[in-house]
Computed example of a mutant assay.
Amino acid sequence: MDIRAILMGLAFAVMWSSAFTSARIIVAAAPPLSALALRFLISGLLAVAIAWAMGQSWRLTRGQWRATIVFGVCQNALYLGLNFVAMQTVEASLAAIIASTMPLLVALAGWLFLGETLRPQALFGLVAGMAGVAIIMGARFGGGLDMVGVLFCVLGVIALTVATLSLRGATSGGNFMMVVGLQMLIGSAVLWVPALTLETVQIDWSASLIAAFVYTTLVPGLAATFVWVLLVNRIGAVRSATFHFLNPFLGVAIAAAFLGEALRPLDLLGVAVIAAGILAVQLAKIPATGRETVKN
């Protein structure tokens, strides 16, 4: 893994983790599904325009189209849609912690459904990661925790796991920015259905809402997705996912800094255990995949 890949991974981790804080600001003042559908519409059109300017084509391979559709529905519509709804009642830090377990679920799904070997180190990481989640959830049960919101976050991270497993097919063959734009437009199209059916548009306008919407549209929405696609293409999905071990720390820290969310001792312990579990799982998988070619 070269220095460029490391910097890309760190940038992605910061952008991905900050999305929960900006989303929390948005859903406190605007209908969540409508706001998210509009975000993806804007981000998707920008990405497609940039792709055209770069000479990229919407004529994707069959594998790219399949993976792009799955990714657009599972990550953008289901994962983020469920999380935006959940964060009306669930703290951004808790939503980030639950979402950060995705690499653990990817490893578990690979073992259960794809016949991948689960090495002892990876098994330890899975157990540690789930123990960390149990520590955090146990500490919050008596504090008015909204279990429906938590369930939405859990269902969302399962959808994110499916999206992640589909991503490799979307990165082959080039057209990276076009892939990013199309999967956003797919997510937007799916989200507009429940948004227009279930929500009434009532917005509490403020400078913080506008800033949060612009930020989440351009940074986590567009830049982070593009960086992630490039990173996976550069070093592979397994090594790229190693950077997710930073997300529990960053998600909690950013929410505390910008939203004033409490930093509980057991939360910090649980975050450390989850991060250690994610790192153990990913490090265990790297030798088994062989030396992946680094692309310039």
Rank of each mutant, 00 (worst) to 15 (best):
G129D: 06
G129T: 07
G129Y: 04
M130G: 05
M130Y: 12
M130E: 01
A131W: 01
G132D: 03
G132L: 07
V133K: 02
V133W: 08
A134I: 09
A134V: 14
I135E: 11
I135S: 04
I135Y: 08
I135A: 12
I135T: 12
I136H: 06
I136N: 09
I136P: 12
M137C: 09
M137I: 15
M137F: 14
R140N: 13
F141D: 09
F141N: 12
G142F: 02
G142K: 03
G143C: 06
G143A: 13
G143N: 14
G143T: 13
G143K: 14
G144V: 11
L145I: 13
L145D: 14
L145C: 08
D146T: 12
M147C: 08
V148A: 14
V148W: 10
V148S: 09
G149E: 06
G149R: 00
G149P: 06
L151T: 15
F152L: 15
V154G: 02
L155I: 12
I158S: 04
A159T: 03
T161A: 06
T161M: 07
V162H: 01
V162T: 06
V162Y: 03
V162E: 04
V162R: 02
V162M: 04
V162D: 02
T164Q: 05
T164D: 04
T164H: 02
L167N: 02
L167R: 08
L167T: 12
R168E: 13
G169L: 08
G169V: 10
G169E: 05
A170P: 06
T171I: 13
S172P: 01
S172A: 13
G173P: 08
G173E: 11
G173M: 11
G174V: 07
G174Y: 04
G174N: 08
N175W: 11
F176I: 05
F176N: 06
M178D: 10
M178T: 10
V179Q: 02
V180R: 01
V180Y: 04
V180M: 08
